[in-house]
C-alpha cells in the first residue's frame, strides 16, 4: 500500500506573496518524513497541495513517479489527518471510520466491519457507537487517524494532528503512530512545529523556512550538522559562537575546536549543541567562563555562561545539564565539547 511521494520544484503564490518557493523533496515508500517549521513557513500548504486540496503555482507532485497534478483529491489515494479532528458530527464514531468505504460503494454492514478493525487498531472499539461530540480530544484524534487509515491510503499526511493534545496524550499518540508504522508501514509526511515530535516520529526531517527547504536529512544530522544558523535555531540549537576558521579548526572564545573539513577559511559560526558541552573545572576545558544565569527545565537545567575572551567576557554560551548543575551564578567554570569537535556554518 505504500508509495513514494515527490515534490518537484513546487511553488505556490497567493497574490504577490510567495508561500512556497521551488520546494523539492522525496519521501521513499514506508518512510516517515517530518516537515518542520514555524507557523507560516508553508508546511501545511505543501501538504494541502499533496492532498489535492490546493493547486501549486508551478512544479509537480509525483506519486510513485506519476504526476498527480490535476487529479482530484478523492482519486489520489492520499489521506490527510488535519490539526482539528474534523469528525462528521452527524455520524457515529464507527460510521466516521466507515465513511471512505461507504463512499467507495460498500454496504453499510461491510463498511462498518472494515471500520471496526481500524477502531481496534487505535483501541477505540468500545466507543464505536458514540457520537463524536461525546469523545475526548485524544479520542477524537485517534478516530481521525483510524478514519484516514481505513481509506487504505497510499500515503498518509499528518498536519499537526497532535498539537492540541496535552503532553501525555501526545506521547500516547506517538506510540500509536509507531504501532501503525510497524503494522501497516504507510508512507507518512508529518507536519509539525515541534522538533521533539519530529525527532520522535520521523526517519528524516525537512526544515522549511519562509517557503524554502533549508535542509533535509536524518534526525541526528540535522541536530548536530545543521546546514545554516536558521536550521540550528529551528532544531533548538542555542549556541552559535562566532569565530574564524583556519584550516578546519574554528578559533573562538570557546577555544580551538576541530570542525568538518572542506570549508573555506574565514569567518564562521560554531554550532555546538547545548547538550554537547560539558562543564568542567576552570583550566580543564577548552575555554573558561562565568555563570550568568540558571534556568530550570524540570529534570534539566540551562546554564548561561559568559565566555572569557582575551579582553574580558565576549560571547555567551548555553549548556544543558541533567539535574542540579552544581554551579552558582557568578562562579567561574571550564567548558569542553563532549566529543572534542564541532560543526561550523558560514551563514
Amino acid at each position: 500500500m505504500s508509495s513514494s511521494l515527490e515534490f518537484a520544484s513546487i511553488s505556490r503564490s497567493f497574490g504577490n506573496t510567495e508561500v512556497l518557493h521551488q520546494v523539492s523533496l522525496t519521501v521513499e515508500p514506508s518512510c516517515c518524513v517530518a516537515l518542520l517549521g514555524a507557523s507560516g513557513s508553508g508546511k501545511s500548504t505543501l501538504l494541502r497541495i499533496a492532498a489535492g486540496l490546493d493547486q501549486s503555482s508551478s512544479g509537480q507532485v509525483l506519486v510513485d513517479g506519476e504526476n498527480v497534478n490535476g487529479v482530484p483529491s478523492e482519486q489520489r489515494g492520499i489521506a490527510l489527518v488535519f490539526q482539528k479532528p474534523l469528525l462528521f458530527p452527524h455520524l457515529t464514531v464507527v460510521d466516521n471510520v466507515a465513511f471512505s468505504a461507504r463512499m467507495a460503494g460498500q454496504s453499510r454492514k461491510a463498511a462498518r466491519q472494515h471500520a471496526m478493525s481500524y477502531l481496534e487498531l487505535v483501541h477505540l472499539s468500545a466507543v464505536a457507537h458514540r457520537s463524536p461530540g461525546r469523545l475526548s480530544g485524544g479520542q477524537e484524534q485517534r478516530v481521525a487517524l483510524a478514519r484516514a487509515l481505513a481509506r487504505n491510503p497510499r500515503i498518509l499526511l499528518l498536519d499537526e494532528p497532535f498539537s492540541s493534545l496535552d503532553s501525555r496524550l501526545r506521547e500516547d499518540m506517538h506510540l500509536l503512530v509507531e504501532d501503525i508504522r510497524t503494522e501497516l508501514a504507510p508512507t507518512i509526511v508529518l507536519v509539525t512545529h515541534d522538533r521533539r515530535e519530529a525527532s520522535a516520529l520521523a526517519d528524516s526531517i525537512a526544515v522549511l523556512d519562509n517557503g524554502r527547504i533549508l535542509q533535509h536529512g536524518p534526525v541526528a544530522q540535522l541536530h548536530y550538522q545543521p546546514a545554516t544558523l536558521a536550521v540550528n535555531r529551528i532544531l533548538g540549537g542555542l549556541n552559535a559562537v562566532p569565530g574564524e576558521l583556519i584550516g578546519d579548526v574554528h578559533h573562538s572564545a570557546l577555544g580551538r575546536i576541530a570542525v568538518q573539513p572542506g570549508l573555506v577559511n574565514g569567518p564562521a559560526f560554531l554550532t555546538v549543541r547545548q547538550e554537547a558541552i560539558r562543564i568542567v573545572a576552570p583550566g580543564d576545558g577548552t575555554a573558561t567562563g562565568c555563570v550568568t544565569a540558571l534556568k530550570s527545565l524540570g529534570a534539566h537545567t540551562l546554564v548561561h555562561i559568559a565566555l572569557s575572551g582575551e579582553s574580558g567576557p565576549s560571547e555567551t554560551l548555553t549548556v544543558e545539564v541533567p539535574g542540579d548543575p552544581g554551579v552558582a551564578v557568578g562562579r567561574s567554570i571550564g567548558l569542553r565539547p563532549t566529543d572534542g569537535c564541532g560543526w561550523a556554518v558560514t551563514r
Binding site: G52, L53, A79
Partner: peptide, 11 residues
C-alpha cells in the same frame, strides 16, 4: 473543512 476531509476520504 469537513468537505476537505471528505474529499481526502474519497468522497
Amino acid at each position: 473543512d469537513l468537505c476537505d476531509a471528505a474529499a481526502t476520504l474519497g468522497a
